[in-house]
Amino acid sequence: MKQVYLDQSISVNDVICLDTKQAHHIFDVLRTTQKEKIRIITKNSGVFFGHVEN
């Protein structure tokens, strides 16, 4: 499963906008497609699951 690290705190049902560098990594390097599930790791060691919209 593809994953991204966020240097911020989030909670369940939050909508997250990635910065340019993270978006490049998710879409261009890892070739993530829309609605594909990803793992989100946060700075406070939280692990969340989500999906890519755009």
Score class of each variant (00 low, 15 high):
Leu18Glu: 09
Ile16Val: 15
Ile10His: 03
Ser45Phe: 13
Val47Ala: 07
Met1Glu: 09
Phe27Ser: 12
Val29Arg: 11
His51Cys: 08
Met1Gly: 14
Val12Asn: 15
Phe27Arg: 15
Lys37Val: 09
Thr20Leu: 14
Glu36Val: 05
Ile38Pro: 02
Glu53Phe: 03
Val15His: 05
Phe48Met: 09
Leu6Arg: 05
His25Gly: 02
Val29Cys: 03
His24Met: 07
Val52Ser: 03
Gln22Cys: 03
Lys21His: 14
Tyr5Asn: 06
Ala23Asp: 12
Thr42Ala: 08
Gln3Ile: 00
Ile10Val: 14
Val4Thr: 13
Ile10Ala: 05
Val12Met: 13
Val47Phe: 06
Asp14Val: 01
Asp28Pro: 05
Tyr5Cys: 00
Ala23Thr: 15
Gln34Ala: 12
Val4Gln: 07
Ile40Glu: 05
Val52Glu: 02
Thr33Gln: 12
Ile26Met: 14
Ile16Leu: 07
His24Cys: 04
Val12His: 09
Thr42Asp: 09
Asn13Ala: 06
Lys43Asp: 10
Phe48Pro: 02
Ser9His: 10
Ile10Gly: 05
His24Phe: 11
Ile40Arg: 00
Asp14Lys: 00
Tyr5Leu: 04
His24Ala: 07
Asn54Asp: 13
Lys2His: 05
Ser9Met: 11
Ile10Ser: 06
Ile16Phe: 00
Gln8Val: 08
Lys21Gln: 14
Leu30Gln: 12
Ala23Ser: 15
Asp14Cys: 00
Asp7Glu: 14
Ile26Ser: 09
Asn54Met: 08
Ala23Trp: 01
Ile38Arg: 03
Gly50Thr: 03
Ile16Lys: 01
Asp19Pro: 05
Val15Gln: 12
Asn13Thr: 05
Leu30Glu: 05
Val52Thr: 07
Val47Ile: 15
Asn13Cys: 03
Val12Gln: 15
Lys43Arg: 09
Ile40Ser: 04
Gln8Lys: 13
Thr20Pro: 02
Gln34Val: 10
His51Arg: 11
Asn13Met: 04
Val47Pro: 01
Phe48His: 07
Ser11Phe: 08
Ile10Cys: 08
Gly46Ala: 08
Glu53His: 04
Val12Arg: 10
Thr33Pro: 00
His25Ile: 02
Ile26Arg: 12
Asn13Arg: 04
Val29Gly: 02
